[in-house]
Design a protein around this nucleic acid. Sequence first.
DNA 1: ATCTCAGATGCGTCGCATTCGCAAAAAACA
DNA 2: TGTTTTTTGCGAATGCGACGCATCTGAGAT
Lengths: 149, 149
Amino acid sequence: MGEAGQENQNLERNIADLCREFGLRLTGPRRIIMQVLSDSSDHPDVVELHRRVTAIEPTISLATVYRTVNLLREKGVLERHTFGDGRARYETTPREHHDHLIDVETGGVIEFHSEEIERLQEEIARKHGFTIVSHRLEIYVRPLKRSRT
Amino acid sequence: MGEAGQENQNLERNIADLCREFGLRLTGPRRIIMQVLSDSSDHPDVVELHRRVTAIEPTISLATVYRTVNLLREKGVLERHTFGDGRARYETTPREHHDHLIDVETGGVIEFHSEEIERLQEEIARKHGFTIVSHRLEIYVRPLKRSRT
DNA sequence: ATCTCAGATGCGTCGCATTCGCAAAAAACA
DNA sequence: TGTTTTTTGCGAATGCGACGCATCTGAGAT
């Protein structure tokens, strides 16, 4: 009978709660988009998200993905990044802030956090007479090669 | 008759050397664009650069500014940044690396450098098995307001 | 279960920043 | 000065993202 909602029942519930909390409607497209988002541990851009979403439900439009992603960002559910290239990439807001190591050879993204760097940033801002609104630290890296490859 | 090339003769020479070095032709537009660039201590975007350039020579097209700026970036003469907003902003590559504090209220950019943060970044990269290719640290800030203005 | 309607969607279009193609103009060089 | 190759200007094209509008739909009221 019901849909295939078996193991991700709690996930579904979370999405439902989320919508209710923000006064949003729990629509088919939204359900799927949010689903895809929480299944994505990487940092997909909107077109990639749309690809994944339409693999599940081909009628969902790119515009809706854009709108949903913006909505969720406004609500603080998603974070937007722009690594070098022009396009925006998203990740579900982590409970703990982190920065990114980007492998320039593979495009892979590794998350890290340094309390020490954070503290130094605060210090620098204060020293200049500012408070930090947000920040962005991206380290573009290349694997340490040992001898031969 | 002659141009106004009086005090910046050495600059002109630098530009000429630069072109020769890279096998580029020393053209009128290039001369002016490079001129404007070295006279700019802020971080102008391409449209702003074009504005400044056309104030000197109105026939220079936006496309040429884009092309020149890309060329100089490839050659390592310029650095490109993208602070939040969509457009790219440029600065002549500084001899000493620095990062940026961006005042979100005014859009103003302040440069800073922290040897300590640099060192921590190295450490983090190494710990993950990488070497740093480049990095980017932007701190978005707001002025500390004291009691009343 | 049905009605109602504000909110959501799909589609096509628009705007902005940037790039491209091509013919004309300008450097470098003989 | 003539020849060759690079640059330029112009306008059109691209890519990302946002928007307007007619249509559709979720979810509370009936």
